[in-house]
C-alpha cells in the first residue's frame, strides 16, 4: 500500500531513463539510514542492555559475569542515586519553566510591528548558537564572587553563586534559561504568527479583555507548538551534563548524567552504568510519552 501512496516517478526524469524504479530510489535513500541506525544506535542499545545484567568492567580483561537484576537493585537502593534523581527533577522543572516563561514572554513582545524586529530576533538567538562548554566557562567567570560582573551589577557583594550548596543548582538553571529561552521564543514566535488575525478582530468586536483573549485565543492556538518546545527542552534538561559539570562541583548540583559519567568513565563500572543509563532511558521515554499524549489531545481540540 505504501508504495502505491508514493508519488510516481516522472517518466521523463533521468532516474527513470536509467531504469530506476520508485522502489529502487526509495531503498537507496532508506537502507543506508536504517543500516546506520542499527549499527550506531540499535545495536549498542541492545548490547548495553545485556551488559546491564552483568558485572562487566571495560577497564579489565576479566570476563563479564551474569548478575541478574543486582545492578538495578543496587542502584535503586543507593540513596546517592536517588538524591541525584531528585536534583535532576528539580533542575528540569526550574529550568524548563523558566525557559517557557522567558521565551514565551519575549515572543509575545516581539510579535508586533517594531523597528529592527529581524535584527533583534537574530541577536536574541545568539546564546543558543554558542557551545555549552563555552557558555559554562564564561558564566563561571560571570558568577565569580571576587570579580564576577553579576555580583557587581546586582550589588550582592561576595555572594557565592556556585559554591553555595543551596544556590548552585539554581545558578546552573539560570545559565540554562539564558541559553535556551531563545529556542522556546523562536518556536513560540512561529506559533504566534500563525494565529489568524481575524480571531483577534472578532474578539475586539466582542469587547473581550486582554486576559480573555490571551487564554482563549492565543494560548490554545500556540499550545501545540509550545508543547513541542517543552518536550525538546525537557529531554535536553534531563540529559544536561556539560553546563553543570563545568560550573560547579557541589553535590547539591550533581545531576544524574554527571553521576553516570563518573560511574562509567572514572570508576569503569560498565555493567552498573549501563543499568543506570537504562533507568534514565526508561524515565525519559516515560516522561516524553506523557507529553506526547497530551500534545495529541491538544491538537485534537
Amino acid at each position: 500500500m505504501a508504495t502505491l501512496a508514493m508519488t510516481t516517478l516522472d517518466p521523463q526524469s533521468r532516474a527513470a531513463r536509467r531504469g530506476w524504479s520508485d522502489l529502487t530510489i526509495r531503498n537507496a535513500f532508506i537502507i543506508p539510514t536504517i543500516v546506520f541506525l542499527i549499527v550506531f544506535n540499535i545495536f549498542p542499545l541492545l548490547y548495553s542492555l545485556g551488559y546491564s545484567f552483568t558485572d562487566f568492567r571495560a577497564s579489565t580483561n576479566a570476563p563479564a559475569n551474569f548478575v541478574g537484576l543486582a545492578n538495578y537493585r543496587a542502584l535503586l537502593n543507593d540513596p546517592f542515586i536517588w538524591s541525584n534523581f531528585a536534583i535532576t527533577a528539580k533542575y528540569v522543572i526550574v529550568s524548563v519553566t523558566g525557559q517557557v516563561v522567558v521565551g514565551f514572554g519575549v515572543a509575545m513582545l516581539l510579535n508586533r510591528t517594531i523597528p529592527f524586529k529581524g535584527l533583534i530576533t537574530t541577536l536574541l538567538l545568539l546564546p543558543m548558537m554558542l557551545s555549552m562548554a563555552v557558555v559554562g566557562l564564561f558564566w563561571k567567570l560571570l558568577y565569580d564572587p571576587s570579580f564576577g560582573i553579576i555580583n557587581y551589577a546586582l550589588g550582592l557583594g561576595r555572594f557565592e553563586w556556585l559554591s553555595d550548596p543551596d544556590m548552585a543548582l539554581y545558578a546552573v538553571a539560570i545559565t540554562d534559561i539564558w541559553m535556551w529561552s531563545p529556542f522556546v521564543m523562536l518556536l513560540s514566535l512561529a506559533g504566534l504568527s500563525a494565529v489568524p488575525k481575524h480571531l483577534y478582530e472578532a474578539a475586539a468586536i466582542d469587547r473581550a479583555g486582554t486576559f480573555y483573549t490571551f487564554f482563549r485565543i492565543t494560548l490554545p492556538l500556540v499550545a501545540p507548538i509550545l508543547m513541542i518546545a517543552i518536550i525538546f527542552r525537557t529531554m535536553e534538561a534531563f540529559k544536561t551534563f556539560d553546563l553543570a559539570f563545568i560550573l560547579t562541583s557541589q553535590p547539591s548540583a550533581e545531576l544524574i548524567s554527571i553521576r553516570l559519567y563518573k560511574m562509567a568513565f572514572q570508576e569503569w563500572q560498565t555493567g552498573m552504568s549501563s543499568a543506570l543509563a537504562y533507568i534514565m532511558l526508561i524515565m525519559v521515554v516515560g516522561i516524553t510519552n506523557i507529553y506526547v499524549k497530551y500534545l495529541n489531545k491538544v491538537k485534537e481540540r
Binding site: S146, E160, L162, S163, T248
Partner: peptide, 16 residues
Amino acid sequence: EMYRELYGFTPPGWAK
C-alpha cells in the same frame, strides 16, 4: 576537622 577549619579561611567561592 582541621581541614574544615582551614576551609573557613579560604577566599570566597573556594569550593571547586
